[in-house]
C-alpha cells in the first residue's frame, strides 16, 4: 500500500473485500483503484472536478459526474455496502442531508473531515483573533470551499441526534494516525469516522 495516501490506506483497511461501495468526492480514483485491484471491490466514484473525472476514466475507475449537494436520490436505499467520503463534508451545502443520504444508500459510511477544535486552530483564533489557516485548513476565510466547519464533538452530536453510531475512529494527519484518546477533540487535526445507522 505504499502508493496510497496514508488516510486512504486506513480507509482501505476498513473496507471489506468484495464489497460494493460509493466513493463521494473520489478525486482521481486512487482508493477505488486500489480496492478494485486488491480487494475485488466494485462500485463508483462521484466527482465534479474535471481533472479527477478524466483521470478516473483513463485508469478504468468507474466515475459519475455528480454533485453531492444535489443529493443521492438517484441511488436506491441500501444499494451499496459502504459509502466513503474523504475531505468533503465541510464543503457541502448541507452536511446533515449528505450524512442522511449516505446512510440511506448504505448501512455504513466512512467520513473524514478537519477538526475545527484542533488546539492549533483554537490557539490561532484565541490568541491571534483570526480565522485559523493550517495544513488541513489552508484557505483564507473569504475563498475557502470549507463552508461548514465543525468539531469532532459537533459531528458526534449530529450522529447521535440522527440515531447513528460511530463504530470506529482514528485521528491524525499526513502520515501520522492513531486511535483516539480522551483529548481527541483538542489534539486531533483530522479524523476518519466509521458510522453505522
Amino acid at each position: 500500500m505504499t502508493t496510497l495516501r496514508r488516510d486512504l490506506a486506513l480507509i482501505y483497511d476498513w473496507v471489506p473485500p468484495h464489497s460494493r461501495i460509493l466513493d463521494l468526492a473520489c478525486g482521481e480514483g486512487d482508493l477505488l483503484d486500489h480496492l478494485a485491484r486488491h480487494k475485488d471491490v466494485t462500485g463508483y466514484g462521484l466527482e465534479i472536478d474535471h481533472q479527477g473525472i478524466n483521470a478516473c476514466i483513463a485508469r478504468g475507475v468507474d466515475v459519475i459526474e455528480q454533485n453531492i449537494d444535489d443529493g443521492l436520490s438517484n441511488f436506491p436505499a441500501d444499494s451499496f455496502d459502504l459509502v466513503v467520503m474523504t475531505e468533503a463534508l465541510q464543503a457541502l451545502e448541507r452536511p446533515d442531508f449528505a450524512l442522511n443520504e449516505m446512510l440511506r444508500v448504505a448501512r455504513e459510511c466512512i467520513i473524514t473531515f478537519p477538526n475545527f477544535a484542533y488546539w492549533r486552530h483554537r490557539l490561532h483564533l484565541g490568541l491571534k483573533g483570526r480565522m485559523p489557516v493550517s495544513s488541513s485548513l489552508p484557505h483564507a476565510w473569504y475563498d475557502t470551499p470549507n463552508i461548514h466547519l465543525s468539531t469532532f464533538k459537533d459531528f458526534a452530536r449530529l450522529c447521535e441526534d440522527n440515531g447513528y453510531t460511530i463504530v470506529d475512529q482514528v485521528i491524525g494527519r499526513g502520515d501520522s494516525w492513531r486511535g483516539v484518546g480522551r483529548w481527541r477533540n483538542l489534539l486531533g487535526e483530522t479524523a476518519i469516522f466509521r458510522v453505522k445507522r
Binding site: 463508483y44 473525472i53 478524466n54 478516473c56 476514466i57 475507475v61 468507474d62 466515475v63 459519475i64 459526474e65 455528480q66 438517484n74 441511488f75 436506491p76 444499494s79
Partner: peptide, 11 residues
C-alpha cells in the same frame, strides 16, 4: 448503475 453495470459519466 441500478442494473449493476460498469459505467462512467461525464457532462
Amino acid at each position: 448503475v441500478l442494473a449493476g453495470k460498469r459505467v462512467s459519466y461525464a457532462n
